[in-house]
Amino acid sequence: MTQSAGVSIGYLAERTGLAVSAIRYYESQGLVEPWRNAGGQRRFLRADIRRLSFVMIAQQFGFSLPEIRNLLSQLPGGRTPTAEDWAALSVTFRDHLDQRIETLKRMRDNLDGCIGCGCLSLSKCALYNPDDDAKRYGAGPRYLMGDRPDSRKEV
């Protein structure tokens, strides 16, 4: 198969291990952009093997499809991304991963105690989160999300 002729969806499925239906779904989500040949068949860049592999890896790390689409939008369309293109993307991806790692560490370290959820059900919440001060930072487990009891934000 030549690059100019593209690769079929079946070939892409075989190379990535994805079902054809999954590839079509990723297409509908804007993660790959095939074209149609003269016979009306979908054709993909060979580089879409790498794009879809990236999608699969990013999903394993907990990234949503909109987040993945945003990351992939940094790559050039219509041509095979170069090593430099992927390196530039990896900087952003690394930053996102670092943030997730920090969140996971906070969750691991605080899972057995108060996670800043604002429920005030533990006796130590009276010391750690008196009067549900965490609510001033917004909804959800604020201390797990990175807010700190001493980072007094004004509402």
Rank of each mutant, 00 (worst) to 15 (best):
M1K: 12
T2H: 11
Q3M: 12
Q3W: 10
S4F: 06
G6L: 10
V7A: 12
I9V: 14
I9F: 02
G10Q: 14
G10I: 06
G10A: 05
G10S: 10
Y11K: 12
L12I: 02
A13R: 10
A13K: 06
E14T: 07
R15H: 10
G17A: 09
G17W: 04
G17P: 00
L18P: 00
L18T: 01
L18F: 01
A19K: 14
V20K: 14
S21G: 09
S21N: 13
A22Y: 01
Y25R: 05
Y25K: 08
Y26C: 02
Y26P: 00
E27S: 11
S28L: 03
S28Q: 12
Q29R: 15
G30M: 13
L31E: 08
L31S: 06
V32Q: 12
V32S: 09
E33T: 14
P34K: 04
W35P: 07
W35V: 13
W35N: 08
R36C: 07
R36K: 15
N37D: 15
A38C: 09
G39A: 15
G39C: 05
G40S: 14
G40H: 12
Q41C: 05
R42Y: 01
R42K: 13
R42L: 09
R43E: 04
F44W: 05
F44V: 05
R46W: 15
R46D: 15
A47L: 03
R50C: 08
L52F: 04
L52P: 15
L52T: 01
F54W: 13
F54C: 11
V55R: 03
V55W: 02
V55E: 07
V55I: 03
I57C: 10
I57L: 14
I57W: 14
A58E: 02
A58I: 03
A58P: 04
Q60I: 00
Q60F: 01
F61D: 07
F61A: 13
F61T: 09
F61N: 06
G62Q: 02
G62Y: 00
G62N: 04
S64E: 09
L65A: 10
P66G: 02
R69E: 15
N70H: 11
L71W: 07
L72N: 05
S73R: 02
Q74S: 06
Q74W: 05
Q74G: 15
Q74K: 06
Q74H: 12
L75F: 04
L75A: 01
P76S: 08
G77Q: 15
R79S: 04
T80H: 13
T80M: 10
P81K: 04
T82K: 08
E84L: 06
D85L: 09
W86I: 07
W86H: 10
A87R: 13
A88T: 03
S90C: 03
S90W: 01
S90H: 07
S90P: 03
R94A: 13
R94W: 12
D95Q: 15
D95V: 07
D95I: 08
H96G: 06
L97C: 13
D98G: 04
Q99L: 11
R100Q: 14
I101A: 05
E102D: 15
E102K: 09
T103H: 14
T103P: 10
L104N: 03
L104G: 01
L104V: 03
L104K: 01
K105C: 05
K105H: 08
R106P: 00
R106H: 01
N110G: 09
D112R: 03
D112Y: 00
G113Y: 05
I115W: 03
G116D: 02
G116W: 00
